[in-house]
Amino acid sequence: MIPPAESLLKYDNPVLVSKTTDRKSPKGRPLRVSPQQPVNSTPVPPPPKPKSAAAEATRQENEEILNSILPPREWTEGNQLWVQQVSSAPCTRADVIHLEELLDIKLQHRQARETGICPVRRELYSQCFDELIRQVTINCAERGLLLLRVRDEIQMTLAAYQTLYESSVAFGMRKALQAEQGKADMEKRVSDLEDEKQDLKKQLNEQKAKCDAIEKRENERRQVEEKKHTEEIQFLKRTNQQLKVMFPNYKPIFFRFSVSNICVAHFKILICLPI
């Protein structure tokens, strides 16, 4: 396993736990194994003053809370298991300034984006926030726990947005595929409707032609009927004039007859009346 990369979160020196890959602690609780400190030629500082039992208990509790908030890192090299716990050394103002400078250097070195979605920028800022939580937890464990809630809430919100984004992308892809499939169906339907439209236009033209032919035939028949009727009327008028000339003293006798049989009635009158 490759050792973890350098992080903005401050860790202690790695500790060799065992030469086997068996892990006794999944969460990496504080171990009582003495770290392998490098040999330093600087003079040994004087031993610290003895602390009270209450202060020691408080420090031990803060370390446990710190390790629960920020678990140690573990990796293997060959058959050796190494553990690196989070540093419990208190921080100063210079440490915070150095953290800011280191953050800017890493952002520039890893070419993180200044705006938009950038996994590199998000990772570095997460490490910086974890370091701030570590620094606050050393001085006040309650404040560190509160910041832990804030961090978890932010991560949960980001995860929710990421899930929503992925589901939206999947939904958009499904809709795009459905639109492509529906597009072919709609094109086929449009083609069928166009063919149906052409057929209806053809039928309409045929019906218009039939209507025009019927109208023309009826007009011709009406003209023939009108001409025939006019000629019949003219014939009757001439016959009437001739009868008036032939019988000037004749008193008209009215009979009931139809117009169509008027010629027959006149002939009957001529036959029945004496000259």
Rank of each mutant, 00 (worst) to 15 (best):
R110N: 06
L177P: 08
T20G: 03
H109V: 06
R23L: 12
L193Y: 10
T20D: 03
A5Y: 06
E187M: 03
A89Q: 14
Q241P: 00
L200W: 06
R73P: 02
N240P: 02
E77Q: 14
L146V: 04
E226Y: 12
R149H: 03
I262F: 13
G144F: 02
L147F: 08
R73H: 04
R221W: 00
N67I: 08
L164F: 05
Q84A: 04
D130Q: 14
T230D: 15
L158T: 00
P71K: 02
N62W: 15
Q178C: 03
E100N: 06
Q162T: 11
Q36R: 10
A54F: 02
N205W: 04
V83G: 04
G144A: 02
D104S: 08
R221Y: 00
Q223T: 08
N13G: 11
V264F: 00
Q36A: 14
D185Y: 02
P50E: 03
R221C: 00
E77T: 14
A179M: 00
D22T: 11
D152K: 12
P4D: 03
C140L: 02
I214A: 08
Q135D: 01
L31M: 13
K27S: 11
P50I: 02
F257N: 09
R134G: 06
V44N: 09
I65H: 09
K51P: 04
S167I: 06
R110M: 05
E123S: 12
E187N: 06
S168V: 05
S7V: 06
M156R: 15
A89P: 05
P252D: 04
P3G: 01
Q203N: 07
R110S: 03
Q207G: 03
T137D: 01
D212Q: 11
Q80I: 02
P119V: 08
S191E: 13
E74F: 11
C263G: 06
V120H: 00
Q207D: 05
L132F: 13
I154E: 01
E123T: 14
S260F: 05
S34Q: 13
N219F: 01
V120N: 05
V259F: 15
K19Q: 15
P43D: 08
E206S: 05
K201W: 09
T137Y: 07
Q178L: 00
G144T: 09
L8M: 07
N249T: 13
D104M: 03
N62R: 15
A5L: 07
C211R: 10
S7F: 07
N62Q: 11
N240G: 11
Q135M: 15
A176G: 02
H98Y: 15
L147C: 05
Q84H: 03
N219R: 14
A141W: 10
Y165K: 15
E206L: 04
I262Y: 05
Q178I: 01
D185H: 13
D130C: 14
N67A: 13
R93Q: 07
E63A: 14
N249W: 09
D199I: 07
C118R: 07
N79C: 11
N139L: 08
K244I: 01
Y161H: 10
I65S: 01
E64T: 08
E220K: 10
K208E: 05
Q223Y: 01
Q181N: 14
L8R: 09
E225A: 12
M186V: 09
E220H: 04
L16Q: 03
S52K: 07
L164I: 13
N79E: 12
I271W: 01
L148M: 13
W75M: 04
R29F: 10
I65D: 03
